[in-house]
Design a protein around this nucleic acid. Sequence first.
DNA 1: CGTGTCATTGATCAGTTTCAAGAGTTGTGG
DNA 2: CCACAACTCTTGAAACTGATCAATGACACG
Lengths: 247, 247
Amino acid sequence: MTFRQDIHSSGIPVLCFPCEARRRGVCGALDPDNLVGLAKTCSRRRIESGMELTGEAQNVDSYSNVLSGVVKLSKSLSDGRQQIVGLQFAPDFLGRPFKEESSINAEAATAVTLCSFPRAAVERMMKASREFEHRLLKQTLNELDEAREWMVTLGRKTAPEKVATFLLMMARNIDSSLDAASGSASFDLPLTRAEMSDFLGITSETVSRQLTRLRADGVIRIENARHVTVDSISRLEKRCGGGRERP
Amino acid sequence: MTFRQDIHSSGIPVLCFPCEARRRGVCGALDPDNLVGLAKTCSRRRIESGMELTGEAQNVDSYSNVLSGVVKLSKSLSDGRQQIVGLQFAPDFLGRPFKEESSINAEAATAVTLCSFPRAAVERMMKASREFEHRLLKQTLNELDEAREWMVTLGRKTAPEKVATFLLMMARNIDSSLDAASGSASFDLPLTRAEMSDFLGITSETVSRQLTRLRADGVIRIENARHVTVDSISRLEKRCGGGRERP
DNA sequence: CGTGTCATTGATCAGTTTCAAGAGTTGTGG
DNA sequence: CCACAACTCTTGAAACTGATCAATGACACG
């Protein structure tokens, strides 16, 4: 893979200049020098939906930034039962530092663009830039918060609430309609019914039934099984089963 | 709270010398100078079972190391449903850095000893010692792994498997019998049936029934509702519903 | 225009919850 | 030291939610 390594007048590699990971991701931690060093080793890859990025119990030889698309992280039991334990959107950092092998499965849920770095380069960067490690810590803490939030959904919510919670999460993460605070959202689901069921800890039939119910109740519109429109986010929120304690 | 601030010949505060957090926790990151600085601000506290350490949506004004006992982290929905999202054992670091207020509830599940530091002191230490932040990152990554592992239990395991998985986790964390690899374990449950149910996403009645079943099947012995003995860990493992993919 | 994958819908079934009652424990005060 | 109160735990029966099994429908692709 070849790309221009010209240095922009600001000292930032052209490849990195428009990159989301520089603004909001871990690369924002790097000064131009470090960024140039890392950019030399990186490779941009487009990955088709359904491709496996890292298998469970597989060696980790690279880390990546998610530049577009959705990556699903999953774990499975030996009898085939599967649980999706997280979704990553741009500009999340993908990979588990400080461990020889991954304990989770990473797979492209949609078409995905990654900016990948060899393991060694990331480890060098982690040593070189304190801010880099700091950002990693912050992202990890956020992921931990999200994981725990999801544990409440998995352990304590009913099937209708689970599906509503998922839709709300999607509306907040990948709403393609421009009007942010308009109270409505419209988006393509990045997951199949079966994947949603693995995320929510229910069956795909139940997911389907609950979506049908939400449509019948006028909470959502389903254009073509993949595309969903939520006219009133607040109505959807009411179906998520109450948030934090103390109103 | 007063304590001797004498400096041991090694330069390590006497209070810290025997401390588990120095050997395996975040304090191990600190050189004697930093350790002395931090020790000046710390206070050792004994907390009775059931006391709340940090409420949801409450300001975080201190961080702690868990020195003994078990701390339970939970989240709850507005209608009272509760989910325990993690347990912390010695010498875990307790608290959520970089956030004004906690989004989870921390409560002493058993009697607990803490070594608490004012927020500012920890933040100073995080700036002063790179290794300190590094250890925090490592612990956070481990907690994330554990949270995701638990998501599989919550989302994809049956009630019998959930209870077995919980017992196995306890056997590994707080086995009081000395013989480590003997294949047996004996311990006091740190949680009531109701708390176990909130951890496992089932009802306390179901927990009770499953424990009864495990006892009837000879997998565990129940001495007094709180104390459990597992004679064969491997038999217990078989009831956890299969671990990782690919045997 | 098959063929295969994914989604919907229906009917039945099983596991878990709910409701209810009783058995064990623990602590308190007479 | 015993009796009573307050819990926690166990057990049973009925009710329900969500799973399973099965058939059909929708859509994309060769």
